[in-house]
Design a protein around this nucleic acid. Structure first.
Lengths: 239, 239
DNA sequence: CGTAGGTTTGAGGTTGGTCAACAGGTGTGG
DNA sequence: CCACACCTGTTGACCAACCTCAAACCTACG
C-alpha cells in the first residue's frame, strides 16, 4: 500500500526494513475520494495525517471575491498534510483533482515515531521540508518568471516528481488538471493560461491533450523554465 | 542569547527548562554580519544551521536575467536555515538586510536532539513547518491578491511576527527594507511598489518613513489584506 | 438530442513594467 | 567648507502583459 511513499522517501535516503514495516503498520483506513471532493478541509483540526496513495490532489485557498489559488500539487506517494501533525489547525483545503485513494496515520502514532525512531522522524520531517522547498520555487516562479517560463517550470517539476514514483512512461505522463486548475496554480486567468500553453505547444516543447502531457524537447523546456531540480533533493544521502 | 527563539517557540507550546538549557548549549559561535552580506549561500552544504539573534534577513534567488525574488523574510528569533539540516544543500542564499547578529547549531547536535528530545525536535520541526505555512500564504498573495492587498498583507504579517518577539512599540516597528527590497519581496517593479505604497498611505492605513512602519488603522489594514493570522500558529498548545 | 464541462478565440480595458528624470540625504575627498 | 558621487525615494510618459467579458466550439454523457 505504501510502496510509492517508500519510493518517495527512499529516493532521499535509505529506509531500514524496520522503518518501512512501522510505516506500513501506522498507515491505515484506506479510502477513496471522488474527483472534486475535499480530502481535508481548511480550519479543521484532524487527529491524523493523510497519505495520497493514488491520484493527484491540490491544496488551495479561496478568497472573498471567489478567486482560487492552488498552493501545492500532491502526487501519489506524497503525505498531503503531514505538516498538520505539528500545525494542528489546517490552513488550506485539499481537493482531489482525480479520483484519489488515500490512507491516514494517526498523530498519536506519529508522536510515538518521534520518540522511538529518530531517523524515520527525520525522514518525515524531510518530506515536509521538501514541500517548503517547492513552495519557495513556486514563489520565485510567480514573482519573477514570465508566465511561459512558469508553466514550463511546473511541467518540469511534475515530470520529475512523477518520475520518482514511476508514473512517467517515455516522456509522457497523465495529468488530471483542467486548464482552469492549471490557471489557478499559476495565478493567471484561464484565458491567458490557454494562450501561454498554445505558445509552448507551437514552440514544439510539449504536447498536452486529453490530460496527457508529453514532453517533446526536454532540453529546451528546461532552458525556457530555467529548471534546476536541486530543490527536490533527489540524492540518496544520510539525513 | 536565545531569548527571542524561546519567545518564538514558546508562543506555540510550552518549553521545558531542560529543553531551553539544551538549546542554549548547542547554539554557539555568535557573530555579526554586515548589511548586504550573505549569511548563507545557495549551493553550499553547511554542517550547521543558523539562528538569527538580531536584525532582519531575506532568503532570495537571482534569475539569469538578474531579477531577484525574495522568498522569505526572517526576523530575530527565527532559525533561518533549519530546513538545511534535512535538505543538506541550500537552495537559496540569505542576505542580511540590516546588521545581523547570528549564531549556529551544529547538525550533529541537532541529530542528537532528535534522538534524545522528541518534544524539542517536534518544536524545531514545527518551526520549519510554520515557514512552509508562510510560504503558502505568500503564494496566495502573489497569485490572487491585488498588489495593494498583498503589501497590506505583508505589513500585517510582519507586525504580528515582530510582536511575538517583542519588537513592536505601540503600533510601529523598525523595518530595515528599502522599497527596492520590498518590491523584490512582492515580485513587482520598484516603481509600482512605490505607487502601491503611496496608495496605502493616502488611504491613511500606514505611515512608512525612515524605515519605521506605523500602522494607523489596523482594522482597515486587516480588511484590505484579508489577513487572518491562523497560519502563524500563535496558540500555545501541546505539539 | 440537449446539457454540462472544458477548450479556444477575439475585443477592449486595466494593471503593472520600463525608461527616464529629478529630489533629498549622506558620506567622501579636495 | 564645498563639490561630487551615490543611494533611495518619487513622479510622469509610454508600452506590454494580463484580465474580463463574451461567444463559439468540442466532447462526453444521460
Amino acid at each position: 500500500m505504501i510502496d510509492l511513499l517508500v519510493l518517495n522517501l527512499g529516493s532521499r535516503d535509505t529506509l531500514a526494513a524496520e522503518e518501512i514495516a512501522l510505516l506500513e503498520q501506522i498507515i491505515k483506513h484506506e479510502r477513496l475520494v471522488l474527483r472534486g471532493h475535499d480530502i481535508v478541509s481548511e480550519g479543521s483540526r484532524p487527529h491524523e495525517s493523510t497519505l495520497l496513495l493514488e491520484g493527484i490532489a491540490a491544496r488551495y485557498r479561496v478568497l472573498e471575491d471567489g478567486k482560487r489559488q492552488i498552493t501545492a500539487l500532491h502526487v501519489a506517494g506524497d503525505f498531503i498534510d503531514l505538516h498538520a501533525f505539528m500545525l494542528k489547525t489546517l490552513d488550506h483545503s485539499v481537493v482531489a483533482l482525480s479520483p484519489c485513494k488515500v490512507a491516514t496515520a494517526a498523530h498519536r502514532d506519529l508522536v510515538s515515531v518521534t520518540k522511538t525512531h529518530p531517523h524515520l522522524s527525520r525522514m518525515l520531517w524531510l518530506s515536509t521540508v521538501i514541500d517548503g522547498a517547492i513552495h519557495r520555487e513556486w514563489i520565485v516562479a510567480m514573482g519573477r518568471r514570465s508566465k511561459k517560463s512558469h508553466l514550463a517550470h511546473l511541467i518540469c517539476e511534475l515530470y520529475v516528481r512523477l518520475n520518482v514514483v514511476g508514473l512517467v512512461q517515455e516522456a509522457g505522463f497523465q495529468l488530471d488538471l483542467s486548464q482552469s486548475e492549471v490557471a489557478d496554480t499559476l495565478g493567471v486567468s484561464l484565458v491567458h493560461l490557454n494562450k501561454t500553453l498554445q505558445s509552448l505547444r507551437s514552440d514544439g516543447l510539449v504536447r498536452w491533450t486529453n490530460r496527457v502531457v508529453t514532453i517533446l524537447d526536454w532540453d529546451r523546456l528546461v532552458h525556457v523554465a530555467e529548471f534546476d531540480d536541486t530543490y527536490l533533493n533527489l540524492r540518496r544521502e544520510p539525513r
